[in-house]
């Protein structure tokens, strides 16, 4: 058995290879974009809207409100990144109901990629909000002595996120695989159901944590400042 979907190579040309992780990600991308395009192709501003539009609006507004609740003042600016994080992870995990499907989030490469993106996004948004000097100054807070600890903290955020997502996804898949061997009936189904729940929880936690890190670094969060104060 494969521990990671990275090991299933579909095509290889030198260093460039198309493994199952990338292929599944593409499928997910096509699914998400096609679905979004299909629903939003004729959006109306009528009072009565279609069910699919209503669903999408609930999701988008829910994510926006969640970002706002974390404390970012203009949620629309972060909606693209954080919303896509949530939708991607959630969709990837939800599709585990299909038997042969392996979630790309179960690959440490994918979770590392996402964690690295958060790692980059945090200073990106922070610099956009505060400017470069303002952002750099945060590392020396409350005193200059804290500088190395702050840098370690920043790096450990990324690592924690990556490992968290990978661990949960992989463990779910692994446990399922092991249980299939031990008890092929009924129990894997329950685990699968639990996997759906943890998948959604992971998607939520990952995106909320990313938001919290961004908010903390950007300093636009009233809540966090108040908590610190």
């Amino acid at each position: 058995m494969h521990l990671s979907t990275d090991e299933i190579i579909l095509l290889q040309y030198g260093a460039i290879k198309l493994n199952a992780t990338i292929a599944t990600t593409w499928l997910l991308m096509i699914l998400l974009v096609a679905g979004a395009k299909h629903v939003t192709r004729n959006l109306g501003n009528e009072v009565r809207i279609t069910r699919w539009q209503s669903l999408l609006e609930i999701i988008v507004i829910g994510i926006r409100n969640q970002i706002g609740e974390v404390g970012l003042r203009q949620p629309e600016k972060y909606l693209g990144f954080v919303g896509t994080l949530f939708l991607f992870i959630a969709t990837a995990n939800l599709l585990t109901v299909f038997p042969v499907y392996e979630p790309p989030t179960g690959s440490l490469s994918t979770t590392t990629a996402l964690a690295l993106l958060v790692f980059v996004a945090v200073p990106f948004y922070a610099i956009r909000e505060r400017g470069l000097p303002g952002y750099l100054k945060t590392f020396a807070e409350p005193t200059l002595i804290m500088l190395p600890f702050n840098i370690i903290s920043e790096l450990s955020h990324t690592l924690a996120l990556a490992v968290r997502l990978f661990g949960n996804m992989m463990s779910g898949t692994m446990i399922l695989a092991i249980l299939l061997i031990v008890t092929p009936f009924i129990f894997p189904m329950l685990m699968n159901m639990l996997g759906l729940l943890t998948g959604m929880v992971q998607a939520y936690i990952f995106s909320v944590l990313a938001t919290v890190f961004i908010a903390a670094a950007s300093g636009t969060s009233d809540t966090i400042n108040e908590d610190r104060g």
Binding site: L3, S4, D6, A15, I16, K17, N19, T21, I22, T25, P104, S107, L108, S109, T110, T112, A113, L114, L116, L117
Partner: peptide
């Protein structure tokens, strides 16, 4: 466990 090409591609 980490395939850096895949990481870059996924990013």
């Amino acid at each position: 466990l980490i395939d850096w090409f895949t990481v870059a591609a996924q990013a």
